[in-house]
């Protein structure tokens, strides 16, 4: 990318990685092709420090207040929130389905854990997504190597700890290659 990477301001607390916020919204019921998915996703902005993160986040709508079929994505700078990105194509994600009312708190806890490097899995984390839907909301965290079971187990255990979820919450791991196969059956 030709774009200049953001840097922490004077006296600010640097993050281990720079991140970019994205937003997407689509008409429900219609499976998005890769192209229209890329057209629907908008960059909000990038940050390099804790303070810069709060400047974005404090002005963003809470996921629980979004309507319709919307997603916030927070990915490391340079990684597109798409299965096809080089950082994601061998990867997968942990998915947690949430009943309505929990998304804002869970999303905040999830991204604070990611920005603060709480997962302890080296370079493996790619980003996180909150998806607002009609019946339920979904949060997910994406990592680079779906086949690395030690990493995916560690991510799962950290999620349980930082999200403080009810014990009966179901967590599901999905590889992106499976997600691509599934969408191809819907949108040939």
């Amino acid at each position: 990318s030709k774009k200049k990477m953001v840097v922490p301001g004077a006296g600010e607390h640097p993050l281990q990685y720079n991140y970019t916020f994205w937003y997407s919204r689509r008409t429900p019921g219609r499976p998005a092709s890769t192209q229209s998915y890329e057209q629907n996703i908008k960059q909000i902005g990038s940050f390099a420090s804790v303070e810069q993160f709060w400047r974005f986040y404090s002005h963003m709508i809470r996921p629980g207040d979004l309507t319709g079929h919307s997603d916030f994505h927070l990915f490391k700078e340079g990684i597109k929130p798409m299965w096809e990105d080089d950082a994601n194509k061998m990867g997968g994600k942990w998915i947690i389905r949430l009943r309505k009312g929990l998304a804002s708190r869970c999303w905040e806890n999830l991204i604070l854990a990611m920005l603060g490097e709480q997962f302890m899995v080296g370079e493996e984390i790619c980003g996180a997504v909150v998806s607002v839907r009609f019946q339920e909301d979904i949060i997910s965290i994406w990592n680079k190597t779906a086949s690395d079971q030690a990493t995916t187990a560690r991510i799962r255990d950290t999620l349980r700890r930082v999200l403080n979820l009810p014990p009966n919450t179901i967590m599901e791991y999905k590889t992106h290659t499976d997600s691509i196969k599934y969408w191809r059956t819907l949108a040939p």
């Binding site: 006296g11 281990q16 804790v50 400047r55 806890n109």
Partner: peptide, 21 residues
């Protein structure tokens, strides 16, 4: 190398610090 690790409480504390405004 060293990793920059912050817990939730620290990050929340930076939200209201003067430098964040």
């Amino acid at each position: 190398g060293t990793r920059i690790i912050y817990d939730r409480k620290f990050l929340l504390g930076c939200r209201s610090s003067p430098v964040a405004k």
